[in-house]
Every structure is written in structure tokens, then in C-alpha cells.
């Protein structure tokens, strides 16, 4: 990476090069773009980067990153507060929001139960979820953890703690994507779809 670069230019190239998907050449290109860009544009970017670390913190209720006390979803009175969708990471919440079909609230666990990587329940926001349910008003908790062994294990663990609270616990369906064809579905998709078949 730009051996000839020194000082602030070299620091910026190094910093950009640490971002996912950005290699040394892209880091160099972006650095030269920023050097040539208007000062307002560059300072706006710098301010946005600063704010994400200084002003963003987890929502008091659902742990989705927010600037206020409650995130925009938790503070929206039009959302259905009787349903909570449990996700591993904020990016999973954003993916579900893009689907635009869910109108309930969320709870971000902050990871998954992965004992092999020393990630235990104490590192997740499970206690806070249980408190939300215990406070009343919640009728259904949807487990939307990743569809892999650790995600399923996390859902199983959380469900086992929710079961005594008398709340309905469901999980996302899995199987064939809409608009696809059976011929190109892999064996796992087909087996999930068969297992989760519904009355027509």
C-alpha cells in the first residue's frame, strides 16, 4: 500500500484498507478521491463516521443501535407491541425491515450462543428479553436467528427460557424461495420445505 505515502495520507490509506471488501488499491483510490473532493463533502463524511461511535448506542428496549433513548421502531406507536421478533444482529433486523411485511417490535440478542467460541448466554441480551416478556403485553415471540446449527441452538435455548412464561414462541419458516424452481433447489431447501409443508 502506497509505500511513498506518508503522514495523514498513509494513515487514511491504512484505515480505509481495514474496512471489509476494501483492498490496498481501492484504499489508495478512495484516499485520492477524498484529497480531491470538496472540503464540505469530506468533513460531512468524517462527521458521520465520528457520530456513529459517539452518538450511537443500543436502544434501551430492543438493543438496536439508535441515537435516542428508544429506537425509531420501539418509539413508533403504529407498531404491534404484542409481537417481538428476536434476531442475532442489527443487520438481521435491517434485513427483516426491508421485507416491509413485519409490523411488530424486535429484540437484538447481540450474537448467538456458540460455546465452541466461548460465547455464552451471559454475552447475549436474553435476560432483558425475558424481562420485556415478563412485564406483560407480549403475546408472541418470533425466533428469527440464523438458520444454522448455532442459530437454531440459540433459538432453542431462548425458547426454553420463554416456555414457562406462557408466551407463544414461533420461528421463521424455511424452505423454497418464492419465484424459484424446484429443479435448482438444493437438498436442504427441499427437505426443509417438505418438513414445513402446510395445508393447502
Amino acid at each position: 500500500m502506497g509505500r511513498e505515502a506518508v503522514g495523514a495520507v498513509a494513515r487514511l490509506m491504512t484505515a480505509l484498507g481495514k474496512l471489509p471488501g476494501i483492498g490496498p488499491k481501492t484504499a489508495e483510490r478512495l484516499t485520492h478521491y477524498l484529497i480531491a473532493a470538496r472540503p464540505e463533502e469530506v468533513l460531512e463524511l468524517a462527521e458521520a463516521v465520528r457520530a456513529i461511535k459517539v452518538e450511537i448506542h443500543p436502544c434501551r428496549q430492543c438493543f438496536n443501535p439508535t441515537e435516542g433513548d428508544l429506537c425509531h421502531i420501539c418509539s413508533d406507536p403504529r407498531r404491534d407491541a404484542t409481537v417481538i421478533c428476536v434476531v442475532e444482529q442489527p443487520k438481521d433486523l435491517m434485513a427483516l425491515e426491508r421485507a416491509t411485511s413485519y409490523r411488530g417490535l424486535y429484540h437484538v440478542l447481540g450474537g448467538r450462543l456458540a460455546p465452541l467460541e466461548s460465547l455464552g448466554p451471559e454475552q447475549l441480551t436474553v435476560d432483558q428479553l425475558l424481562r420485556r416478556v415478563q412485564e406483560g403485553g407480549v403475546k408472541e415471540v418470533i425466533m428469527a436467528t440464523n438458520p444454522n446449527l448455532e442459530g437454531d441452538g440459540t433459538a432453542l435455548y431462548v425458547s426454553s427460557l420463554l416456555a414457562p412464561l406462557g408466551v407463544k414462541v414461533t420461528r421463521l419458516a424455511r424452505g423454497l424461495p418464492s419465484g424459484s424452481v424446484l429443479e435448482f433447489a438444493n437438498s436442504q431447501m427441499l427437505s426443509d420445505a417438505l418438513e414445513g409443508r402446510q395445508t393447502f
Binding site: P115, L116, L149, D152, G153, L156, Y157, S160, S187, Q188
Partner: peptide
């Protein structure tokens, strides 16, 4: 995929035992 173990996603004790097997082998 040749085989999966679906019971591991339905029984926490089974899942924890399986994690332990994976750790010992690994």
C-alpha cells in the same frame, strides 16, 4: 451434505453434548 442430526436442534442437552464432541475432536 450427507447427513445432519436434527435432534440437536430440538434438545439442548443433545446440542451441548455435540458441541463438546466437536471441541474434543478439534
Amino acid at each position: 451434505v450427507v447427513e445432519r442430526f436434527p435432534r440437536l436442534t430440538r434438545d439442548l442437552k443433545a446440542l451441548y453434548a455435540a458441541y463438546y464432541v466437536a471441541e474434543l475432536l478439534g
